[in-house]
Design a protein around this nucleic acid. Sequence first.
RNA 1: GCCGGGAUGUUGGAAUUGGUAGACAAGCUAGAUUCAGGAUCUAGUGGGCCCUUUCGCCCGUAGGGGUUCAAAUCCCCUUCCCGGCACCA
Length: 849
Amino acid sequence: MERYTYDPAAIEPKWQNIWEERKTFRTLDDPKAWEGKPKYYILDMFPYTSGAGLHIGHPEGYTATDVLARMRRMQGYNVLHPMGWDSFGLTIERTAERENIHPAIVTERNIDKFRQQIKQIGFSYDWDREISTSSPDYYKWTQWIFLKLHEKELAYLADVPVNWCPALGTVLSNEEVKDGKYVETGDPVERRLMRQWMLKITAYADRLLEDIEDVDWPEGIKEMQRNWIGKSEGVDVDFTIKDTDASFTVFTTRPDTLFGATYCVFSPEHPLVEQITTDEHRSEVQAYVDEAKNKTDLQRTDLAKEKTGVFTGAYAINPANNTAIPIWVADYVLMGYGTGAIMAVPAEDDRDWEFAKTFDLPIVRTVQPPSDFGDEPYLGDGPSINSDFLNGLNIQDSKERMTEWLESKGKGKAQVQYRLRDWLFSRQRYWGEPFPTVQLEDGTIMSVPESELPVELPPIDEYKPTPDGKPPLARASDDWLMITLPDGRKGVRETNTMPQWAGSCWYYLRYMDAHNATEAWSAEAERYWMPVDLYVGGAEHAVLHLLYARFWHKVLYDCGLVSTKEPFQKLFNQGMILAYSYQDDNGKYYSPSEVEERDGEWLVKESGVRTNTQIEKMSKSRFNVVTPEEVIDAYGADALRLYELFIGPLSVSAPWQTRGVEGVYRFLQRVWRLAIDEDTGDPSSKLTDAAVDSDPELWKVINQTIKDVTEDTESIDKMNTAISHMMVFVNAATQAATVPKETMKTFLRLLAPYAPHITEEIWERFGEAELIAHATWPHHDPEVLKREEVTIVIQVNGKLRSRIQLPVDASNEEVEEAALADERIQKHIDGKTVRKFIVVPNRLANIVV
RNA sequence: GCCGGGAUGUUGGAAUUGGUAGACAAGCUAGAUUCAGGAUCUAGUGGGCCCUUUCGCCCGUAGGGGUUCAAAUCCCCUUCCCGGCACCA
C-alpha cells in the first residue's frame, strides 16, 4: 500500500522547479509595479567562487536573509533579494594554471557548482539578476567607475614601496598582509619599489570616519573601521640640525612633552640619514640601514622585543629650549607613518623609555607622576614640570599652549595623521579587470574612451608573469598591447589588473538594474532601491571589503551617481559554524566516521587510539567539513534550513551537530502528520471546520505563536527561538484532539519562510490554488492574549515559596491579602514580623520578614 | 599590551532586559508498540537532602566581593575562551 509519508527528496525538487518556471521570486524592473509597496533591499555577501564549493557555514546567513525576504514579501513589501558571484581572483587563476585551461572555464565550472548547491536549498533569489564580476558585461562598468576615479584624480600612478610576494609573483595590499605574510597562504612578503596604481582613499578618511556614525552596524565592526582609519590629532614640529641648514619635521600627539624630548630618531629609510651622518659614524649607520632594508616586515615586527639603533653623530636643536639632542637611527620608527622621524620623550613613552634605557640616553620627566610612582614611563595626567612656560598645566592645557607657541614662532603646526594608507590597486595577475588606460610614448597616461569599454582580457598562452618579471598580460600579442591613436601617437596598454576587491565594491548597485546595457544602473532604480536595508555576511570583511565599498560609494555620491552617502544602512554579522574535530596525540586528524565514543572518550574505531575532541573551524585538513548536499540527502533542504537557524542566535558561532538536525527533521515530520493523512495523502481527519476560537487554549497558543515568530524573525538574531515557538505550537496541536483547519493554515504561513517546500506541498494538498509564498502574513489578536487570571509568584525574603492564581490587574492590596492567606506562606512567616511587602503587578510579590 | 565579544545542565541554547533559572531541542533512563533494527508514542531527566506521603528543604548561571526586598542580568576584582589591532609617535 502506498503511503504518503513526509518525503523531502520528492517534494523539494518539485517546488524548486515550480518556483523557477513561474519566476515566483522575480522582482520587476518596471517602476509601475513598485507603486504602493514599501521597498526592502536585503543582500547577502556574495561568495567567492573558489573550487571548494559551499560548506555548511556559508548558507547560515543566506538562510536567515531568505527567511526574512520571504516574510517581507508575505507582509506586502517589494523585495529585492539577489545573488551573484565574486569570480575574479587568485585561487581561480592558480587552478587554471595547474590544469592548464582558461580561468574563464574554471570560473564557469565553479559558478555552476555554487549555483546548483544554492538552488538545492530553496532560496528565493531573483535569478534574473544573477551577476558575476568576471563577465565583460559586468567589468565594463567596474572599468567605467575606475575612469571616474581617474577623472577625479583619485587614481594615480606612483613609485611606492609595495608588499611583493615572491611566491605569488604579485604585490599585495596592506590589508592583505599581516606579520609580513600574505594572510591567505602565509607566504612571506618583502618590500619593493614599484610603479603602481594607487587609489586615494586617504582623501576620504574623515568622511569614512564621520559617516560611520549614521549607519546601523555592529559596534565592534564600527570600532574596527575607526581603528583602521586611525585618526590622531597632534602637531608637526620642525627641528633644525645643529651646524647645518638642514631641518626635519616630526609628528607628535604629545607636544606638551617637547621639553622632555632628549633625542630624535629617524627611520632607516629616512632620506636625511645619509646626509646628516658624520664620517665618524658612517660605516656603522650604513651597516644598520642595510640590515634593516634586508629584514622582512616579519622580522622587523616580530623580533622587535629588543630595541636596536645607532647614533648618527648629528644633533638636532630642540625648538622649545634650544638644546642640542642626539639623532639616532632605529627601526622602531617606521617610514610609513607620520614623517618617518620622531622626537623621543622617554619619560612619557614606553618605546622611547626602553630605547633610552638600552642606550643610556637622558630621561627628563615633564609630567609629575604620583608620589609612589616607580621607575617607569608615566603616561597618565599630571602637572607639567621642567617645562618653562607650561609648568603646572595639565596635559590638555599644555598641549594647547605648546601648539599655540610653536605656531606663533613658525616652528610647528597642528596636524592630523591617519593610519590609513592609500589603496594599492594594481596586481600582477591575469584574472582581474584590465585597467582601461594606455601609456603613450611620451609617458602620459590616457584613459580608454568610455565608448571602447570594456577592455577585455586578451587570450594568452600562459598565466604566469613573464621571465623578466612583467605581469601575465605582457604576454598578450601586440594587437591587444599596442595602440595607435587617430592622430598617429602610439601607446601601450596597462598590463596590471585590478585587485579582487574591485568587483565587490559596487555589485550591490548592479543588482538594481542588472541588464542595463547603456548604464551601470539607472538613476530611477538607484533612487528607489538604495540604500541596502540589510546586509548580512561574516565579520572577516569588517575592514577590507566594507571600507573599500564605502569609499567607492562616496566617490559615486560626489559624482552624483548615487543618492545616499552610505551603501549599507544595516549590517549584520553572522557567527561562524564550527565543527568537532578529532585529533590523536601525534596531531593526526580523523573524520567523525572513523571515531566512536566509549566511556566518554573518543577512540579511533579500528585502532582504539584515543583522540582529543575540539571545536574548530571547518576545513578539509581537519576532516570536519559538512556539506549541504550530505545534509539534504539525509534530511532534506527544509531540515537543513531549520537547523542552520535553530543552532543558536545568528550572531553567535556554534558547532554543527548532525544529531541536532534530527530534532528539526522530527519536527517537520510531526508537522506533516498533523496536516496530512499518511494513508491517503489528503488533509488529516484531525483537522476540522470548527471556528478558530472553538478551542480557546489552542487559539491562544496560535496567537502567541504569531506574535513570537513575527518578532523573533524581524530581529534577525532570534530565529532560533522563532523555531522553538513553532515547536511549542506543534506540540500543543499534537496533543489536542482536533485542530481547526484555519488554525493549521495560519501556522503553515508562519512556517513557510523557514521551511518553504513542505509548507507549499501541504498548502497544495489543502486545495489552495495560490502558492503559500504569495499568501499574506498573519496578524495576532492582542485581545486573545490578555489573560483573565495570572499566576503570581510569592516570595519570602526573595525565595520562591508559593504561587497563587489571581484575576489580572489585581490591586496590591488584593495581592497582599491573598498572599498572606496562603497556607505555605503562613508557614514561612509564622512568628515573624512582615517588614515590607513588594508587589510587581501581575507577576510577583516578595514578603520581607 | 590595547580594543571588542563571551563563559548558564551531559550537549546546542532559553529567560518578558533587575522579578518563577534551564523554554525548545539533542542525549540519556523507563514504559508502550514492533519478529528484530529503525521509526513512533508516553513519562522522567541541574546537584544534594528527605523519600514519614509529588509534601518539602538546601545548593546552583566561570571564581571572589558589592548594590538591592530581589542579580544569569547592574558595579568592582580575578581566571579562561574567541575575534581584531599591535613599535602608528
